[in-house]
Design a protein around this nucleic acid. Structure first.
Lengths: 193, 193
DNA sequence: CAAGATTGAACTCTCAATCTTA
DNA sequence: TAAGATTGAGAGTTCAATCTTG
């Protein structure tokens, strides 16, 4: 068994800070959106992607991929949005199996109404808090991490084949505890999820 | 009506990169945890907080606050975990209304088994991808943003009282479109949620 | 059979109502 | 009455099965 490289204090700080930011920011912006515009973040994301697409229509499969959603989730979500007049479904001429999700007039109206307040919310809780340098640091870090997760299957496969470590050459000096020994003091600190 | 300050290209880049990182990282680490250890991220977070607490017990109210969860969510979650032998409930001697969530033997065993693989997952998908400088940049940014959202009620109140802008003195030169005009080209780009 | 998409059931989360005690 | 906590119903998500077409 290999020794577990626990997180160093500064790594743990980064991880917990990330967790707090991710959860609170997501929750707050979703809350603002719902209160201000009556849209869930799922609703909004669908409307954004459709509004940006050529002809305001996207194949279901394609849309699910862009949103990183399962087909099932998208199908249920669109059924609800269709019932509210935000989107429509259309058949695909070139492939009879396929279906298009199409932005309906009501959906366009909704997102046009919602967008200004949503932008303000994003500014208030994130963008306007950061200076130019921090903004570009965040972009770089986020693109790096997201890019590394581009292909989920590759990551999962890699994890199962080889051992768990050696993911990159960046391993800092291995300041950590040994497995079985656990984190030091009373009240052990496991890394938060 | 005030003109909407849309996101500049570099701001939009940061926001979309953040969204992609947040969603993919959360999903991947939750997937790893479930496959490797049979725990949901909610399960794991509860176990972490209980394992770190004095006496491995936390008042329900307190635990809900630390997790940023509603009382209702925590109550349901603990009911499920209790049925699996991960936690127990105990009465509070000093306040008969209160209840403690207590880490059960099974829960301790589960998190001890899960933690090493979880740390490896966190390293693989985030920590080991960043150098020391990026790690501290991430910590600083995340703590700043999370700290600003510390008091959700304050934020919500502030938004409703005054207008939407003027959140801080950091406003860059207002490169944006005017309201009603909308984003420029065909296929308008609204800020993604 | 594989790919595109939908369906239903089980599970999780949210919201409002409820119950008990300070 | 307010605080701590639970409950049940409704909404959203996931998982496996299904249906149709390439």
């Amino acid at each position: 068994v290999e020794p577990t490289r626990w997180l160093t204090p500064s790594e743990d700080r980064a991880w917990r800070a990330w967790l707090a930011m991710a959860e609170r920011l997501r929750a707050q912006i979703a809350r603002d959106l719902l209160v201000d515009s009556g849209l869930s973040d799922a609703d909004y994301m669908v409307l954004v992607h459709l509004s940006e697409a050529e002809g305001r229509r996207v194949r279901m499969n394609d849309l699910a991929a862009r949103l990183n959603w399962s087909k099932s989730r998208l199908s249920h979500q669109l059924a609800r949005m269709q019932a509210r007049g935000l989107v429509q479904r259309e058949e695909c001429p070139s492939d009879a199996r396929g279906a298009f999700a199409v932005l309906a007039a009501g959906g366009l109206a909704e997102i046009e109404r919602a967008a200004p307040k949503h932008v303000a919310s994003v500014r208030r809780h994130l963008i306007d808090l950061l200076d130019e340098e921090q903004l570009s640091q965040l972009s770089d870090i986020a693109e790096l991490v997201a890019g590394h997760l581009r292909t989920q299957s590759a990551c999962t496969a890699a994890r199962q084949e080889s051992g768990v470590e050696k993911s990159s050459g960046l391993n800092a000096a291995g300041a950590g505890w040994l497995e079985g020994e656990g984190p030091p003091s009373r009240a052990p600190r496991f890394p938060a999820c």
